[in-house]
């Protein structure tokens, strides 16, 4: 069964089209990531899927229930960690969890048992009676995760769970999510960290300007990249017109020279390598290095979203700065 079914989801803010007729499904037990640059529509999408925001049009079923008709029942089946949601700072971690448990109609024993387990798993048990006010950003995020998991939801939704956190907290949260997913919880997260999506997700949807422009496993997405057919070669000595000579070899599409390297786009990597070795020995050239360029998810992302790597880096920086201020 598909645990999330989205068909024709569209969202206008007044006249601004933020999400443009997207459709996709997520299978039960899947780890799904929505990856996109700032302003792509990730938050808008995840808020609509979780019933925190109403769509302009489209059909959305989560755990088999129509979110537009019965968001309260959907909320009993899912956990939500939205981008900026805080636990109640004036209460302790423990009291926050008791409150969440009560609103999910758990019995007193269930609440205590569950809170104890979660706080231990998330490394918060020793600080359970401290006010959340005193917690760092990373610890608050962990409390938010525990809050969302009190009722043992079937699906966990996270909007940029690691943005603005340090490396250690991020890693801890990623490992925790992996374990959760192994235990059968479906996970839907949004991120603009490409490596995060790559290392966690079974499947990734790439969103830009409110449209999903690709949706596949990380490996298949990488295979889409043009770079998979790229070689890089450099020679010890050099001759005039090497580039033109290489260009004439069978299968070679394009040759570019960067510093002392030649970047070669080809239809058939294996054949071109053989040709290049032949070519080098015929011309008495010593090969210093020959690399096939492994495609990264970033390459695909950059190609699909039309952002240059430099722009991408800048956007990530801005994203980080913005998130840290909050």
């Amino acid at each position: 069964m598909d645990i999330i079914e989205v068909e024709g989801l569209t969202k206008y803010y007044k006249k601004f089209l933020a999400v443009d007729n997207i459709s996709f499904n997520v299978r039960e037990g899947e780890f799904f990531g929505l990856l996109g640059p700032n302003g792509a529509g990730k938050t808008t999408t995840i808020r609509i899927l979780t019933g925190l925001l109403k769509p302009s049009s489209g059909n959305i079923f989560v755990t088999g229930i129509d979110v537009r008709k019965n968001s309260v029942e959907v909320k009993s089946n899912i956990g939500i960690i939205s981008e900026t949601a805080n636990p109640y700072l004036e209460m302790s971690a423990w009291d926050n969890l008791m409150f969440a448990g009560a609103l999910h109609s758990l019995s007193r024993e269930e609440r205590r048992k569950r809170a104890e387990d979660l706080l231990k798993l998330l490394g918060l048990y020793n600080r359970r009676n401290e006010k959340v006010e005193n917690f760092s950003k990373g610890l608050r995020k962990r409390v938010a995760i525990a809050l969302a998991l009190m009722h043992d939801p079937q699906v966990l939704f996270l909007d940029e769970p690691t943005s603005g956190l340090d490396v250690q907290s991020s890693r801890m949260i990623r490992q925790f999510l992996r374990k959760l997913n192994e235990n059968g919880v479906t996970i839907f997260l949004t991120t603009h960290y490409i490596e995060e999506a790559d290392s966690l997700c079974d499947r990734i949807g790439i969103i830009k300007n409110g449209k999903i422009i690709a949706i596949d496993s990380p490996e298949n997405l990488k295979a889409q990249s043009k770079k998979k057919r790229t070689l890089e070669i450099s020679f010890e000595n050099t001759l005039e017109n090497i580039a033109e000579e290489i260009q004439k070899l069978p299968n070679v599409k394009l040759v570019k020279k960067y510093a002392d390297k030649f970047i070669i786009h080809t239809d058939d990597i294996s054949e071109t390598i053989k040709e290049l070795v032949n070519f080098a020995s015929k011309k008495n050239l010593r090969i210093v290095s020959l690399n096939t360029m492994a495609p990264s998810l970033e390459d695909t992302f950059v190609e699909l979203t039309g952002l240059s790597s430099l722009e991408l880096e800048r956007i990530e920086q801005i994203g980080k700065m913005r998130k840290m201020k909050m």
Binding site: V72, S76, G79, T84, A85, N86, P87, H104, A144
Partner: peptide, 10 residues
């Protein structure tokens, strides 16, 4: 920013 936390509950 606790509003989301509150309305995430059923």
């Amino acid at each position: 920013n606790t509003f989301d936390t509150q309305i995430s509950m059923p």
